[in-house]
């Protein structure tokens, strides 16, 4: 695979089933009457169970690509297949439903709801499911235990450190057992120690729970923790 720095054994890679498949992706934005081509005929496959880092200079299209994979945005052209579903053909409400079922989000700024406690923040995505209320709470508590925050369940975000907030965000991302976790600069706002903790948890989720993770990062040290590093420049994977 010439578009990525491959760290996994070739035999393992070849056998892996593609969870994410992008073909001929073009993304053009209009700004002030000018058309900006952010992604230009991009092809990408991400295997199930992979942990991939997307790197590249600012404006290279990393976040745009991540948004397309996560179903937050639509391509100008091309197809996006995630787990056998053409998400570029879904309407807004179908896409929202799909995201709830399939994607776990981790944001740079954690984006927790300040009025909710840690456990309630983690429970939030489950409100969209038919899981009974008592089970919702149990699942949220379990997710918080996975990220080592069992003693902070009833704390509000303002009572947590940045690293702890990001761990709550990770718990929220995994609570509905998504097929794919997308992380946009998950360590961007953290000190080195907290960043290492977060990257450790992501590694653990990938290794032990088999979660497929796509992470956008500027940080080479964070990217090094992924199995695959892909580099984007001027809308193309290099």
């Amino acid at each position: 695979m010439d578009t990525a720095t491959e760290k996994a054994p070739a035999s393992h890679r070849d056998k892996a089933e593609a969870l994410v498949s992008l073909r001929g992706i073009v993304k053009i934005y209009e700004r002030g009457g000018e058309q900006l081509k952010i992604l230009d005929g991009l092809d990408l496959e991400i295997a199930k169970g992979s942990y991939e880092a997307l790197m590249g200079p600012s404006g290279s299209g990393k976040s745009t690509l991540l948004n397309l994979i996560a179903g937050l945005d639509r391509p100008t052209a091309g197809s996006i297949d995630i787990g056998g579903k053409r998400i570029d053909q879904l309407n807004e409400s179908q896409l929202a439903r799909w995201r709830a079922d399939t994607i776990g989000f981790i944001f740079q700024s954690y984006n927790l709801m300040p009025v909710l406690t840690a456990v309630e923040n983690v429970e939030l995505p489950l409100l969209l499911t038919k899981v009974p209320s008592s089970e919702r709470r149990q699942r949220a508590q379990t997710a918080l235990r996975v990220v080592g925050l069992e003693d902070r369940m009833d704390h509000f975000p303002r009572q947590l450190s940045g690293g702890q907030e990001q761990r709550v965000a990770i718990a929220r991302a995994i609570v509905n057992d998504p097929a794919l976790i997308v992380a946009d600069e998950p360590t961007g706002d953290l000190d080195r120690k907290s960043a290492d903790d977060i990257l450790g948890i992501l590694e653990q989720l990938n290794r032990e729970l088999g979660k497929t993770i796509v992470m956008v990062t500027h940080d080479p040290a964070a990217a090094e923790r992924a199995k695959v590093i892909r580099r984007l420049d001027k809308g193309q994977l290099k």
């Binding site: 937050l72 929202a96 439903r97 995201r99 079922d101 989000f105 984006n111 939030l124 969209l128």
Partner: peptide, 15 residues
Amino acid sequence: TNEYGVLKALGFSNK
């Protein structure tokens, strides 16, 4: 607005 964006990203609909 950012929070509503987060909710929508998590799968909450416009409704």
